[in-house]
Computed example of a mutant assay.
Amino acid sequence: MDMSNSPSISGDDAEAALLRRYAAGEDAAARMLATALTPRLYGHALRVLGDTAEAEDVAQDALLRLWKIAPDWRSGEAKVSTWMYRVVANLCTDRLRKRRSTGLDDIDEPADPSASVEQRMQDAARADALQQALDSLPDRQRQAVVLRHIDGLANPEIAVILDTGVEAVESLTARGKRALALALAGQRDALGYDNDG
């Protein structure tokens, strides 16, 4: 698909404009918005849940919810991407709660097929160690750490997504980082990290 003549999806206004165009019946606007949002939503869900199938389901469910509210979207009240992250965060929390009640705790991390076997094994060990460390965090700390340090969102946006204050986000991420450091302490050599790196 040639996107050279398509409008940019970089700004919040562009996302809201695409959503309005979709609500007006323009299917291409929905495809463009989904193309822009899906990788971020899927990536966040994957990091929180640690399961590709569940992450795909969450991203798809979040987009369906966006399409349903499109006709009623009120520009200026929330950024489309912030609203979407909040939906994904809530869906992930629901799945984590359900998982705990059904006992599904051990989920394999997918390997990167483009690297060498040795590199894939190293990457898988690192990803597994990180996922296990993330899994050990309380849900809200995990959400805050993933949104801040993996997805790269700012604390005010995270506060909106998690429905809390900026100070609470700062506390959640700080405690989460300390807990991750403790959980990963002593694994540098096993994970192939040099002491000076």
Rank of each mutant, 00 (worst) to 15 (best):
A190V: 07
D123F: 13
S75V: 13
C92T: 09
D72S: 10
V146Q: 05
D12Q: 05
L19Q: 01
D112C: 06
T93W: 12
S81N: 05
A125M: 11
G197C: 11
A125Q: 14
A127S: 15
E56C: 01
A168P: 00
V160H: 02
R95S: 03
T52H: 09
E26F: 00
A115V: 15
L18M: 09
E54V: 12
L137K: 09
R99I: 00
R140V: 08
L104P: 00
D151C: 08
G165R: 09
E167H: 13
L137A: 09
R140I: 10
L46M: 03
S101T: 08
A154F: 02
D106H: 14
D2T: 10
V58P: 03
I9P: 08
G152Q: 00
I161H: 01
Y85W: 10
A59I: 06
A59H: 04
G197D: 14
A183Y: 07
N195D: 15
R178V: 08
A36D: 00
R47I: 04
V87R: 06
A89K: 04
D72K: 12
A17I: 00
L18F: 01
D163K: 10
R140S: 14
L66S: 03
D13R: 05
D57M: 06
A36F: 00
T173R: 06
K98I: 03
V48Q: 07
R65K: 03
L182T: 15
G176L: 04
R100Q: 14
V88I: 02
L134T: 06
D12T: 07
Q132L: 14
E109F: 14
P39Q: 04
G76T: 03
D108L: 15
A70Y: 05
P138F: 10
K68T: 11
T173C: 10
A30V: 01
D106K: 12
L134F: 12
I69E: 09
W83Y: 11
L41T: 03
T82H: 03
S101K: 13
E77Y: 08
S8L: 04
Q141E: 15
L147A: 04
D105G: 13
R126N: 06
S171M: 13
R86M: 08
L191D: 12
C92V: 09
H44R: 09
G25F: 03
M1L: 11
L137H: 08
R74L: 08
D196E: 14
A115Q: 09
D27Y: 01
P7E: 01
L18E: 00
L182H: 15
A183S: 11
E118K: 15
D163E: 10
A70E: 08
S8D: 05
A53I: 08
K79Q: 15
D51A: 13
A144M: 04
V80W: 06
E56Y: 05
A185F: 10
I161S: 04
K98P: 01
Q131G: 12
